[in-house]
Amino acid sequence: MSDAIGIRPSVGENTRRALETIGDHLIPEAHGMPSAGTMGVGTTQLDVVLASRPDLAPLLEGALADAKLDDIGDFVRRLEAEDPEAHGAVTLAIVAGYYMHPEVHELIGYPGQVPKDAQRLGEREIYQEGLMDLAAKVIERGPVYRPTPNPDETS
C-alpha cells in the first residue's frame, strides 16, 4: 500500500524502542494477554503497519526520536495535550501493530473478516426463528406513519 500515498516509511531505532516502551505501558502483559512490546509493535509489527500507513512514519519520528521516557504516563499525557495528531499516530501504531498480530487474533478469538459461506444466506438464516412472527406483531400494531396531507391542507 505504500505507493498509494507515495511516502517511503522510515523510522529510526530510538523511535522503535520508544514505541516498544510506550506499548508495554499502554498494553502490558496482564489477564492472560501478552504485552504490546513483546508482540513487536516497535519491530516487525511496526513494519507491517507502516507498509500500509507510511504517512504515520514522520509523525512517529517527530514525536519519539528524541523522547525522554523517564515517566511514560506523563509523556503520553503531555503528547496528547500538546500534539493530538502525533498522539493519535503513536496510539494507532501500537494498537494496530498489536491487534493485527495473528497470535493476538488467536487469543481474542478473532478469525478476521472472513467471508461467510453463501449458504449462510439460506432461508433458515434469513428468516431466523421468530423473525416472521415478530414482524407480524409489528404489522398488527398498525401503521406508524402520518399520511400525506390532503392537497387542500398543503401550504
Binding site: H25, L26, I27, P28, A30, H31, G32, M33, V76, T91, L92, V95, A96, Y98, Y99, M100, V104, H105, I108, Y110, Q113
Partner: peptide, 26 residues
C-alpha cells in the same frame, strides 16, 4: 467493527490503558 476500532477510543466509550485495557477490550 473490528478489533482496532474497538480498542481505540474513536467511537463511544473511554480509552483504557494499562492492565485493564484487556478487560475493557474483552
Amino acid at each position: 467493527g473490528g478489533p482496532i476500532n474497538m480498542a481505540l477510543p474513536a467511537r463511544a466509550g473511554e480509552s483504557e490503558w494499562g492492565p485493564d485495557h484487556h478487560l475493557l477490550f474483552r
